[in-house]
């Protein structure tokens, strides 16, 4: 039986929770063999393969909710602070190189300080450094040096979540009783 090129690395990366990015040669193989990998992960582990135009990842039946929540809080505060700083946060996420010092500056002076201090992964520069290492291992950021990094296209998973969440909220204000079309992911737990 013949397997796609980079098969071992593709499976290894995805099973390590990494996003495979369009800039990676493995992405082409994954895309070209989408049906095979969808079946492969479904039949072998009951995992779902999510393949977008510029990144791919798998979803386990159990989610790492804590990490996901921390990532959302991280992006939420960062976008809020970038906007306050007069920057176009989407352009920044897409193209800018960030420095740890800049991130620390935003988080240490944020009015969301209560939320930040109560979060083990974001509460101080050292925890944030470790947290960014976790994002690096998942390919959500790419480190250019010890203190500098850029976001990969994987940031879109979280930014899309925020956008869908807003649509749900705006929908609520239009028709309070209507079912929003925001999908199961963003339904607020009451």
């Amino acid at each position: 039986m013949e397997f796609p090129r980079y098969h071992l690395d593709i499976v290894g990366d995805l099973m390590d929770g990494k996003f495979i990015l369009a800039s990676d040669p493995k992405f082409i193989e994954l895309k070209n063999n989408q049906q095979f990998y969808e079946r492969f992960f479904k039949e072998s582990f009951k995992y779902e393969l999510e393949l977008k135009s510029d990144y791919g990842y798998i979803l386990s039946y159990e989610t790492n909710e804590q990490l996901s929540r921390d990532i959302c809080i991280f992006f939420a505060i960062l976008c809020y602070e970038l906007d306050k700083d007069g920057k176009n946060f989407l352009e920044e996420l897409q193209y800018a190189e960030f420095e740890l010092e800049q991130i620390d500056n935003y988080f240490d002076n944020s009015p969301y300080s209560d939320l930040i201090k109560s979060n083990k992964q974001l509460q101080d520069p050292e925890s944030r450094k470790q947290f960014l290492n976790t994002l690096g291992r998942r390919n959500i950021i790419e480190k250019s040096s010890e203190k500098k990094f850029t976001f990969t296209q994987a940031y879109k998973v979280f930014v899309d979540f925020a956008s869908d969440f807003a649509k749900g909220k705006l929908g609520e204000s239009d028709e309070p009783m209507a079912d929003s079309d925001n999908g199961a992911r963003i339904i607020e737990e009451v």
């Binding site: 995805l14 929770g17 995992y47 990842y57 798998i58 979803l59 386990s60 159990e62 989610t63 790492n64 909710e65 990490l67 996901s68 929540r69 990532i71 959302c72 998973v157 979280f158 979540f161 969440f165 199961a184 992911r185 963003i186 339904i187 607020e188 737990e189």
Partner: peptide, 8 residues
């Protein structure tokens, strides 16, 4: 709020 799924 229910957040996006992340691989565990």
């Amino acid at each position: 709020v229910q957040v996006p799924q992340v691989f565990k």
